[in-house]
Nucleic acid binder design. Structure first.
Length: 321
DNA sequence: AACGCATCCAACCGCGGCAAA
DNA sequence: GTTTGCCGCGGTTGGATGCGT
């Protein structure tokens, strides 16, 4: 049995709101509040609208302090950084941008920001092709500058803390390559590692391989020890040249503090080798911010942060012991 | 001026989570 | 423990507008 509809769709008005409807809704809520029941609200006001429609109209348009108009560079930066960290959790992203709604941010991302970044990716890929698959340091620099690299590092650390409060992650890299990238793959010095990884992954329990997303090739995932899912850290950058992202980490299934340090260290190295020195902040990112070095992140840092911020959670029994 | 295509964004839809019955 | 119904979220749609030819 399906869920009962929230309203009689035949008897509710749909489509754009008139100024009269807006005024009715706004004045009622300002005077009486929502009453905690959106479904009942339109009946009280005498609006022939679905309660959900009223809620959406209020939250996205009528409520006070809504900011309309273009997004600032700073807002762009926050959206991109958070999207990179947590994906399309628009409500969470919106919570970091006072006056912006999740719908606004979602629309802005889908229509502009994503294209901005994807356009950059295409440019980089064309550039790679013309160089016969070699990845130049300046390309790495461009990518990281685009991503506001220091924030990327910090977000990875936060991610790590959020998802795996007491355990080190294993980092996996999908060995299934796009056919059109095969030529790059065979030139990649880590190709052998992928072949080894193929063997390793084929010997893993089903739960582990299930956490490994074949539809998103070339992307590193953290998979926790319980095998209940992984996070694609670079989901918007799947098309970056093979090997570039891979340099950020290692791709074995061995857990070790060296492994995590290797991942973060790789990032730090890339950043530190990209116009970023500890004594100078002369260069700027594409956001126009000074490019400053992030604090070095180590496994020990994460553990320390964890001990301060997170009480040890109850651990379910590992399926991979 | 007219047409077609691209872009923007308000609004809708369906689902999962959650609390109350 | 199960059912019911609301809330909030993310994905998608479609009308309005802009722009190029």
């Amino acid at each position: 049995m399906g869920r009962a509809p929230c309203c009689d769709k035949a008897n509710v008005k749909r489509g754009p709101w008139s100024p009269e409807e807006d005024a009715k809704l706004k004045s009622y809520i300002e005077e009486h509040g929502t009453g905690g029941n959106w479904i009942a609200l339109p009946h009280k006001i005498g609006l022939k609208r679905c309660g959900k429609s009223c809620r959406l109209r209020w939250l996205n348009y009528l409520r006070p302090n809504i900011k309309h108009g273009s997004f600032s560079e700073e807002e762009d930066h926050i959206i991109c950084t958070l999207y990179l960290s947590i994906g399309s959790r628009w409500s969470i992203i919106a919570a970091q941008l006072p006056g912006r709604t999740d719908n606004d941010i979602k629309n802005y991302w889908n229509t502009r920001l994503k294209k901005k970044l994807m356009g950059k990716q295409r440019k980089d890929q064309q550039s790679l092709k013309s160089r016969g698959g070699q990845i130049k340091p300046e390309m790495k620099r461009e990518v990281l500058e685009d991503l506001k690299a220091p924030s990327l590092c910090m977000n990875m650390m936060n991610l790590y803390q959020s998802y795996w409060p007491t355990e080190l992650p294993m980092m996996l890299t999908n060995p299934n390559q796009h056919q059109d990238q095969l030529h790059v793959k065979t030139q990649d010095p880590t190709f052998e590692q992928y072949q080894q990884f193929d063997t390793i992954i084929s010997n893993q329990p089903e739960e582990l391989t299930a956490a490994y997303h074949p539809q998103l090739p070339n992307t590193p995932y953290f998979v926790n020890n319980n095998g209940d899912g992984g996070i694609n850290l670079f989901q918007e950058f799947n098309n970056y040249p093979f090997g570039m992202i891979n340099e950020f980490g290692c791709n074995t299934t061995t857990q070790s503090s060296e492994q995590f340090n290797g991942l973060v260290g790789g990032l730090n190295n890339l950043i530190n080798g990209s116009n970023c020195t500890s004594s100078s902040a002369e260069s700027t990112t594409s956001w126009g911010d000074p490019l400053a070095c992030p604090p070095p992140i180590t496994y020990e840092d994460c553990r320390r942060g964890l001990l301060q911020n997170c009480p040890p959670p109850e651990q379910p029994a590992s399926r991979f012991q």
